[in-house]
Computed example of a mutant assay.
Amino acid sequence: MAAFRGPRVWLWRWRRNPLRRRSDELESWLVLAAWTLALIAGLLAGLVSARSVEHSLARQRAEWHPVPALLSEKAPGSRAASAASTERVWAEVHWTAADGSPHSGQARVEPGSRPGTPVKVWTDREGRLVTKPAGESQAGLRAGLAGALVGASAAVVPLGGGRLLRRRLDQRRMEQWDADWARVGPQWGWKTG
């Protein structure tokens, strides 16, 4: 049989109650402030970080470009194994940058490729090797995930601070209870007529 709880009362923490202590009122405002700050901090931090990641990935798409390169050495592995799988291996490649300067570095190529095999690599403005930039949909997903993670992390700070303050309020209430009990408790042992 379920206990009768009565009608649900909105904002019950702020209603008049003769048993409400000052610390109860303080705790109610603390909970409200912690949740409000968590919501605001989480949203702002999430939106700012998502926008920053999206802007950074858009800049990469604009600045990074594909460059034809040639394999400098025979790639490890065999062509027979590469036909059955999509595995790629690291090998030395060389290319000429837009300013005409020669560059070399490691790139992923098909196993067993011969020297001189053309390979497409991605470079930045300075001609350094970079990974292929994220497409628009992939960039949107990365920005959304980064924003959600940063937003959740930022929201934890005010919630954690509020929890620590509530723990301190509980500790103070228990100390107050102990002091009151030490004062009143011995009176209960008296015999009454």
Rank of each mutant, 00 (worst) to 15 (best):
H94T: 12
A155L: 07
Q60A: 15
T96P: 00
Q171E: 15
V184E: 12
T86V: 07
E54F: 07
G185F: 08
E87H: 09
G100Y: 02
A84G: 09
L32C: 09
W90Y: 03
A139N: 11
S72R: 14
R172I: 07
A62N: 08
W14M: 12
R125Y: 01
R20I: 07
R8I: 11
Q106R: 11
P66E: 04
T96A: 08
G193W: 09
W177P: 06
S101C: 00
A41W: 15
V157Y: 04
G151L: 01
S78P: 04
A98E: 10
R88A: 04
P111M: 03
A91M: 03
R5S: 10
P68L: 10
G100E: 11
L159A: 14
V130H: 00
E126F: 05
V157A: 07
V184T: 13
A50E: 03
R15E: 11
G105K: 06
K120G: 08
K191P: 08
L165P: 04
W90G: 03
G193V: 10
A97D: 15
V89S: 03
E25G: 15
L70G: 06
L159Y: 09
P186T: 07
W10Q: 14
Q176P: 00
D24I: 14
W122Y: 12
L57K: 05
R61A: 07
V31Q: 06
E25Y: 14
V184K: 12
G77S: 02
A3R: 11
P18V: 09
L39Q: 02
G77F: 01
R114N: 07
A41C: 15
R16W: 15
L164G: 09
A98V: 15
R168C: 02
A69N: 00
S153N: 07
V93Q: 04
R125D: 10
L39F: 14
A182N: 15
E136Y: 02
Q187R: 15
D124R: 07
P66H: 08
M1C: 06
R166M: 14
K120I: 14
S72C: 06
R5M: 08
E27D: 13
R15K: 15
D24A: 13
S23R: 08
S104R: 15
W14V: 15
W95K: 01
A155P: 09
A62Q: 15
R172C: 04
G185Q: 13
A179C: 00
L159G: 06
W35E: 05
